[in-house]
């Protein structure tokens, strides 16, 4: 079983190839070159170096959000194109769940944070006492202050003392988080901070074993937020 994992949901572009439970190759780029230029070249490199063609793939995995609207669409459009051409199914997985999978066997509550601009973060909370993340909440967009209120409530419910924050939504509000969480705060090192295509591939293997696939015709990004125009139309401002 070969899974090609593609992620361009955030400023990171990542591609990985996983065979059964073995990671064969991974490309990770967190640099300002646009995903549109890098992503398919990375796919070509990863498959080429592993002497694999798209026909050998079992499925194609992709992060479906939240994240940058344009980045999500670049990744999903690429995944759809490969899926149709190679006649292979898709596995769409939440960006936040992929980030939570950076941490395993931990008693702390895992809170991946993505910078959502407008003084907000995208987040969801996970339990990772086992090998795979168990979701505790839905994906949401909220202010850092609101996020802290929610995380403290959730920690009380699930009896967790430590709280792990990771993702590019951490740094802009680091001082605030440190002040609010003090000794309860855990922050992972650089290589576990951002979404990794390898983690996406690992989660997708689990889904593929259960034959829990998505269809290229129907899969859409999970934006969490409405577009600005729809938001204004909803409020009667247009």
């Amino acid at each position: 079983m070969y899974i090609l994992a593609i992620d361009s949901a955030t400023p990171v572009a990542g591609v990985a190839l996983v065979k059964d439970s073995t990671l064969l190759a991974e490309r990770f780029l967190n640099f300002k070159k646009t995903h549109s230029e890098t992503l398919m070249s990375m796919v070509d490199q990863v498959l080429g170096e592993c002497e694999i063609t798209v026909q050998d793939l079992t499925a194609i995995a992709v992060t479906i959000g939240p994240g940058s609207f344009t980045g999500l669409r670049i990744g999903l459009a690429a995944a759809k194109g490969l899926s149709l051409a190679a006649d292979r199914p898709l596995v769409g997985i939440s960006t936040l769940e992929v980030m939570a999978h950076n941490i395993v066997f931990s008693d702390s509550m895992i809170c991946p944070l993505l910078d959502a601009r407008k003084q907000e973060v995208y987040t969801a909370f996970f339990d990772v006492t086992g090998i795979y993340p168990q979701r505790l909440t839905e994906d949401m967009a909220c202010s850092p202050a609101e996020m802290i209120e929610r995380v403290l409530t959730q920690a009380e419910i699930s009896c967790q003392n430590k709280i792990t924050l990771l993702g590019d939504g951490y740094a802009p509000y680091a001082d605030f988080f440190k002040e609010r969480l003090q000794g309860r705060l855990l922050v992972p090192p650089a290589h576990l901070m951002l979404p990794r295509a390898a983690a996406l591939g690992s989660l997708a293997c689990l889904r593929a074993r259960q034959e829990d696939y998505n269809n290229a015709f129907y899969l859409r990004p999970v934006y969490v937020r409405l577009s600005e125009a729809e938001h204004r139309l909803g409020k009667g401002e247009l």
């Binding site: 549109s36 398919m40 798209v54 344009t70 669409r73 194109g81 490969l82 149709l84 051409a85």
Partner: peptide, 19 residues
Amino acid sequence: LIGALLVGLSFAKAFAYGL
């Protein structure tokens, strides 16, 4: 529109590559 162009271009690249 850049965001709109990128959907078609990203799909087309992958579709061509896959075929």
